[in-house]
Amino acid sequence: MSAKLLTSAVFAGVVAGLIAALLQFYFVIPTLLEGEFFESGERIHFVTDGSPQSERGSPGLGGDFGRHAMTVGFNIVTYIGFGFLLLAAMAMTEMKGFTTITARSGIIWGLGGFIAIQLAPAMGLPPVLPGTIGAEVEARQAWWLGTLIASGLGVWMIAFLRGPIALVGVVLLAAPQFIGAPQLDTYWGVAPPELSAQFVSYSLGTAAVGWTCLGFFAAWFWTRDNA
């Protein structure tokens, strides 16, 4: 029954997307909205006397319900997309006899997805607080896409291949980082570095939870009896 693969991806994507969105609203979005104070110039980090002090404080979530509803919606869409790809990889790997998928091993799959799809690209292109200017967006997207493909393949090879060929996986993981992401030769950030750093760690932390949940629920829905 092949439909089960697809419904499992959708269910898991909805659950993981909602959990991720909930965490984002507590951690990531208030930080992002605080960053927008600096993007808009409402707050200025280095004021005219050169003092690097600026007021701390997030506006909270504010009242923009429509904007936040979109964030929830796109989280669900994104995690369903990841769910499809993760389950396709799980099914393929099981079909070829490399492993047997269980809900518990799904957690490791989710963490593997986090490493390949979030952590590896973020090493070269960290999550960006609004107000920071980056290199040409097409060039960044190309590096980002290449990095997730190479890293995904690399993580899979390290997990399932034995012998020297597994080392190819290490090379695939490392290569994009040594090639390097496109960067500008100047800094443009207007927000305090502390705020930017906090945004990055919140973003990666919530994505780690989202991916772990995605892996668990994708495997759980898929391997569950009589669904």
Binding site: L32, R67, M70, P127, V128, R140, S203, A207
Partner: peptide, 10 residues
């Protein structure tokens, strides 16, 4: 917001 949160190049 979601792209920023997920570190998609935006």
């Amino acid at each position: 917001d979601q792209r920023h949160a997920m570190a998609f190049p935006c």
